[in-house]
Every structure is written in C-alpha cells, then in structure tokens.
Amino acid sequence: MVGVVVAIIWMKDLIAVVMLLGIYGLLTASFFMAMDAVDVAFTEASVGAGISTLLLLVAIAKTKRKEHPSRHKPLLALLVVVITGGLLIYGTYDMPIFGMADAPAHTHVAQRYIEDSYDEIGIPNIVTSVLSSYRGFDTFGEVVVIFTAGLGIIGLLSTVNGTGTRKKLPTINDSIEDQHIVLRIVGKILIPFILLFALYVQFHGEYGPGGGFQAGVIFGAGIILYAMLFGMDIARRVISQSLIQLIAAFGVLLYGAVGVVSFLNGGTFLDYNVLLENPVAGQHLGILLIELGVGMTVASVIIIIFFNFAGRKGPQQISDDLGA
C-alpha cells in the first residue's frame, strides 16, 4: 500500500493517479476484510474503488489530464509532515498492543453492543444495530451530509450553461452509443440484475453485511451504467432531475419522520421501541424504514452528482478511456 501511494506522488498523469487510487481503495477494502470489518470493507470497495474513482475520472474529463510539473515548497511541506508524523509515532508508544482483547476500547461501551444487542434489537448484525439504532442519530447526520453535498453540487453545477433552449447535452460517451452494440445488449441484461441486487442488499443488511448506503450506491451505479450505455439524453428523459431531487429530499424526510413519530409516541427522537407495541418489532420497523430513507437519498444523490458532472461542457479527451 505504501508503494502505491509513493507511486501516486510521482505520477504526473492524473488518470494513472486515479487508477492507482482505485487500487489503493481496493487494497484498503481487503485490509478491512482481514480486520473482520465486513461492512466497512463492502462500503470501502464500492466507494473507494468505485464511486470516487468514477467521479475523479469524470472530473478529469471535464478539466485537465496532466499535472503541471512544478513544485512549490516541498521543504516546508516536508517539515509539517515530519512534525505531525513524529507526533503520531510518539503517541503510538503508549497505545495498547494491536489486537489485545482487553484494551480499553473493547471493554467499555462496545461490550454491551456485543452482549445485549440481540435481545434489544433482535438482529444478528451488530454493526447494523449500532449504526441504525444505538447511534442512529449519527447515521441521520451522515444522510444529511450526503444530501448537503448533493444540494451543493446542484447549486454549483446545474443550469449555468443551460439557459433556455434545451440543446443536446454533451455526454462523455457519445461514441459508445454507436459502436458497442454488444455492450448495450449485455448492459440491458445486466442492469435489472444490478438493481435487483441493490434491493437485496437493502433488505438483507440485518443479517449479513450491507444496508441502505451500500444498496444506494449499487442502485445509483446501475442507473449510471444505463446513462453511460444509452446516452445521457435518454437517461435524463427516463429520470428527471427535479424528480430525483425530490426523492433525495424525501429520503431525509422519511428518516426524520421516523424520529418525529417516535417522539409523538412518547419516546425520544429515533426511539424505535415505541413505534410498535413490541419493542423488538418496533426496532425492526424503525431500522427498515430508516435504511430505506438512507438508500433513497444515497442513490438519488449519486445520480444527481453524476448527471451534473456529465452535463457540463468540457474537453472530452478521455471518453474513450472510460468506455474501454
């Protein structure tokens, strides 16, 4: 991994940098897997190696491909980095030994999650129970972060060049539309399965790794694939921008509504126990609903981001790289 990062520093070709970053993401994901963090590995694989690589490529397509070979102040940077790094290394000396089972991190709060979460929430995946119930408010915040980014990107990128007349939108892959019939047919067969798989991940999160976020990413990726294969125009006709925005907003509202209903029912915000008479069933319902909200917001924001990026004018030098 260190090697990959060092290579990133030296590379001037941004596409290669992004590809290496994708590899880095994938390596990180495998490391998470080895560390027993299956949910995190799943997310990192889809985000680090998937979405962020895709976004960076699209952004490079809209800007410049080469890094200008100029160096500003490597010495100062080096100094700052060495001080910070030195401080961190200094800090590691009093850390508990790696993997030690009785480190303070494992013996205090986490203990209860492992021992009692099944009785209190009723689902085997502890990560899901902590994520959506014990620390459900953090997850709400996370959805809002995504929503904020989506809004920010629309606010920055949309409609600036599209005043009035609807011209044919420039896409990053006009060429594919004509050339790759095989790709399109394969895509047509594949896309329904991707969307189905997304739904599976959405509702299976309670038992295995997965959940609203990962499902949203997969669903969004499916739509993006469709847009890439059949052209942005058609994709936009199928899914209108304003509708997607509303879905994203609705996801946040759904999550919030669960919280509001729970305090109307006499609990506190996001207290799923009071949603139904049986607390465990209430937890089930609550988690199901909020994961749905997460999935909706994430999927629509990803689509929004991609559409807005791809809708900008810009040099199209890497359209072939992307398609191939």
Partner: peptide, 27 residues
Amino acid sequence: NPLPHVLILTAIVVGIATTALGLAIIV
C-alpha cells in the same frame, strides 16, 4: 469491536461527500 466499524462507515460517507463537492468546485 463493532463500534469503530460503525464510525468509519459514517466517516467514509462523509469523505466521499467532501470529495464530490471538492470536484464540483474544481470543475
């Protein structure tokens, strides 16, 4: 320990949101 996993799930999402917004500004 499941707790750091949960925190990092959140942090990954926050990270990609920041990257996306940063890229929009770059464009």
